Amino acid sequence: MPSPIPVTRLLPRDFRPSVELGACSSPLFKNAGGSTLLVPTPTFRSKIASRLWASVIHWNELHCLEPLGSGGFGSVYKGQYFDETVAVKKVKRCTKNKLASRQSFWAELNAAHLRHKNLVRVIAATTNIPDNRDNADNIGTIIMELAGTRNLQQIIYGDVEPLVESRCLKFSIDIARGLQYLHAHSIGHLDVKPANVIVSDTGVCKLADFGCSLKLEQSGDLSPLTTHLGGTYTHRAPELLKGEDVTLKADVYSFAITLWQLIARELPYTGDRQQILYAVVAYNLRPPVNGDRFGKSTFGQTCKALLTRCWNASPNQRPTAEKLLAELNMMQSC
């Protein structure tokens, strides 16, 4: 299936793909840091070989796929790749919106070149899929690090261990660090929510699932790579619900809803979806911050003030991810 993205969009301007590259449009790499996995590097120019992820999957090295979960555009599996345990995402063909499923795959790669301890690392990705029964509806495969076996939503709503203030703050700082790094590279995640935050065995939070992400060009205009906007309505900024311009501040709004969930351990809204959407946009509906967890401690009161600014209806009134991280770090040092 041809990509909706020009081949040169993901390559250096002075590079032209050879027949060795296959269907995906980014050169191979030798994996850098944080892993024992070394993907064989072909004989490209050194400038190309230094890229951080692979556009060719060595299918004979991928084994033992076990289902981990599924979402709107694909399923995630646990597997072995070059003897390392990895997560494998298969992006499925959406019969109702074929373009959206292709765009979701390419959006997943917006942050593939980035390396940060609070982002799930992409190892390899390709649209060149073996033709067999297991891949009948698969339009693209992404191999990622297996960052953890639980997400933040499972911890918030299913963990018997209490989410004490220090733990909430630590998780929040991890998420803010990932956002600050993304935003420094002009990438908006646009689907920040507890289910898209993987928590490692050592308690490190990593942002995952970039299928709704967008790249902002240096001019400030949105990249044409992704024209659809997905995301979860309960966490989606009101300007996006109204169809207005997308900015990085939309992630700050989504962060605020996620922080509220960490503290309250409740669902942000209940009731009819359309009524909630209308109330968020027209009446500034937000999750309640009048409970004991937001009023009886200095931490709760500080978080209440931070939430109010982060989910402000006007993006210009919200802090940047950098300022948000600075405030959270200050709270941790107090």
Rank of each mutant, 00 (worst) to 15 (best):
V192L: 13
P268W: 15
Q261A: 04
C24F: 14
R309A: 08
L259H: 10
E239D: 04
A54K: 04
H58G: 04
K89P: 09
V289G: 10
V164S: 00
L62H: 13
A112E: 15
Y181M: 12
L163P: 01
I187V: 14
Q154L: 04
R150L: 07
A195V: 13
P40W: 12
L21E: 13
V122T: 15
N284E: 13
I175R: 09
A100F: 09
D191P: 13
L21N: 12
A107T: 07
C168Q: 05
R9F: 14
E84S: 06
V91D: 01
D137Y: 11
V86Y: 11
V197A: 06
A32M: 09
T95I: 11
T320M: 11
C24W: 05
K296G: 00
A282I: 13
T36D: 15
E217C: 03
L146M: 15
H63T: 13
L182W: 09
I129P: 08
S219Q: 12
V120F: 06
V19P: 02
S101R: 02
G203F: 05
D131E: 15
G203S: 11
R177G: 03
G158Q: 15
V76M: 08
L259N: 02
I139H: 10
L240V: 09
G271E: 14
C64G: 06
K89H: 11
L28Q: 03
G72T: 14
R150N: 04
S213V: 02
G158D: 08
A23W: 06
W260Q: 09
H235E: 04
L325R: 01
C205L: 05
I257T: 04
P288K: 12
T43K: 03
P268F: 05
I175Q: 07
I143D: 07
K193I: 02
Q317S: 13
L207Q: 03
Q218I: 02
A237W: 02
G178C: 02
Y157N: 03
T127W: 03
L222K: 09
A195D: 12
A250G: 00
I139Y: 14
A195T: 01
L267Q: 09
A256E: 05
V199D: 06
L163D: 03
N60D: 14
D134P: 01
N316D: 11
I129W: 07
V88R: 01
K96M: 13
T36F: 08
I57E: 07
K193E: 00
A279L: 10
S314Y: 07
